[in-house]
Design a binder for these strands. Structure first.
Lengths: 339, 339
DNA sequence: CTGAAAGCGCTTACAG
DNA sequence: CTGAAAGCGCTTACAG
């Protein structure tokens, strides 16, 4: 358990002040005009004594923890774990470490995660927020610690955010179904007020409108986050067992698509003959479906890159440019396949 | 950007020493015999001034960062992201935060993650290690910081570790295939020396031996981590296009199973008529396969619970019991379905 | 019951 | 070119 060697240990060992050692370690020997032989001696001692800086002390002194706090709905959801992975890579490159937490679509959990992160002095937040957390985000902003929303956002609320063009791409997706000759198109979405989802429903409506297809409330199926399996099942069964014909469906997320597809398989509905499908995002599962699904492809890599870029920029400019926020929209694209 | 209020601010505001405030905040007013009205005044000020402790300073002083460093092969792999999620939940409950990193089966990345975590003074490590990292683990142990291996382990190397009974459950899985009347059973596994995988191949061999089925090297297919898609494809095509009959296959992980199944589907092989299958772990994808797969189910929840439990125990007993390590084996079970 | 002070490991103006 | 010293925000023996 040989205690870790500190700056002081090296200084004592060499009979010099800690200041010298600190300068050399941080490669500031130039600025501090440390003697060349002193530099050599110190560098050697650093190696000999296997010195490892205590980053906690450094953080306390510098006020920078070099830590990013990540909050998503659920890190075990493939969509978010992929985002987490990409954030990790980008952050590491820049000398940051990522701490993560899952809010489970629960505003209280979100708040408690934020509190923990604040107390731990994270340098910045990347959050995919949950309903009713506007004030939490606002509170972070007030502290002056940068926060960038990713994927999800609040349209009436000024924040830095990075997301895709949900509405437009959804419109395109549904238009694709219409182009394939479908006229009775349903959508399966979440029961939520979050804009990234309602935008998708909006896009759906707009596509119908554009092509003069009358919207029908029954064709809009909503599942709650908390009872998703049961809800999807019920909604889908209602939809396909109703008197209303359905020959196309748009899934607003891949989790919904995975569950929805199961029902479709269970009902023995033939894709694409009886039903054409477009989904959001990819899933391993889709590859096992006999008709490869058409889907909306978001470039998560780019999404993350923009988010980290923006966050780091904010961290560096600090307190300046308060109250001036940026929205980055990454273009998603439609990949059409057999479904 | 109203600077955060510190202990000192409160003390000054009240005209008392920081010691008092510290005691009250940490609920040590009893031990320190702080006056009741003083306690009241301080508690009020803490609320009024919206005091939030600086955990970095606390860490520096206490030597405890209340942080756990998690290293897995790839956080975006569903197996690991599920583990991450469970670790997060357990850790949070205990007041710990988790920082994560992906080693990509690369010893150098693993080392650099470990270094970063050490410098950041994590209180403990949970690692699913990569090949050739024994010495890295050893080095952590030497520092006195607890490390628990999860899922993967080094058989000839003393560490705390939590894992399943890979060999026995694999033997059972293959025996199940034999019980179903299969005699020409292949295994698809990784090309690695890591014991959690080789144990599975051993279990396979043992099952054959027990039932007096001659082993055949050609039936053991290995894919490398780094070229998994191509390797699986080639190996599987070789296997099924060879003159050797194959009527059963055991997939050593779910990633392998997902890729392997695609080939099987591509070749139009009928499951279970022509080929019986047992896989490791679950996947969303399997639900879309026409014959629900039999699989080995590991209880990740329990795995994580044991791992965190062991880690916390080590953290608490600190330096004591050096060189004495524990291996916890969680029993996996075989779930048999149609395949 | 309360305060003054040292110290965790580091950085950085300021002297000399 | 180098050292002494203050300070980041906290805790905790030690006096009184």
């Amino acid at each position: 358990m040989n205690k870790k060697t500190s700056l002081k240990d090296i200084a004592q060992h060499l009979g010099v002040s800690t200041a010298l050692v600190s300068y050399v370690i941080n490669n500031k020997e130039k600025e501090a005009r440390v003697g060349a032989d002193m530099v050599k001696k110190i560098r050697q001692a650093v190696i000999d004594m296997n010195y490892q800086p205590n980053l906690v002390a450094k953080s306390l002194k510098s006020g920078q923890s070099k830590t990013i706090g990540l909050i998503v709905a659920d890190i075990s959801n493939p969509f978010f774990s992929m985002i987490a992975r990409l954030i990790e890579d980008e952050a590491m490159k820049l000398g940051y470490v990522v701490i993560f937490g899952s809010s489970d679509e629960n505003a209280e959990k979100s708040q408690s995660l934020i509190n923990v992160y604040l107390n731990r002095q994270v340098d910045g937040f990347i959050i995919s927020p949950t309903e009713h957390t506007e004030q939490q985000i606002r509170a972070i902003q007030k502290t002056g610690i940068p926060v960038v929303l990713i994927d999800r956002y609040f349209p009436d609320f000024p924040t830095d955010s990075v997301r895709i063009n949900n509405k437009e791409i959804s419109e395109q997706a549904v238009e694709h179904l219409i182009d394939m000759g479908r006229k009775h198109i349903a959508v399966l979405t979440y029961k939520t007020k979050m804009a990234h989802i309602t935008d998708r429903t909006e896009g759906y409506k707009q596509a119908l409108k554009k092509h003069k297809i009358k919207a029908n409330k029954k064709m809009i199926c909503e599942a709650s986050y908390h009872d998703i399996e049961k809800d999807v099942k019920n909604q889908m069964l209602n939809l396909f067992n109703g008197e209303q014909k359905v020959d196309g469906i748009f899934f607003a997320t891949n989790s919904l698509a995975v569950l929805g597809l199961k029902v479709i398989i269970g009902l023995g509905i033939k894709v694409p003959d009886e039903l054409a499908i477009v989904s959001f995002d990819q899933s391993d599962a889709f590859d096992f479906f006999y008709a490869p699904l058409s889907y909306v492809s978001q470039c998560l890599q780019q999404l993350v890159k923009e988010a980290i870029g923006l966050l780091i920029k904010r961290i560096q400019q600090q307190s300046k440019s308060r109250g001036c926020y940026e929205s980055v929209i990454v273009e998603a694209k439609l990949v059409t396949r057999e479904s």
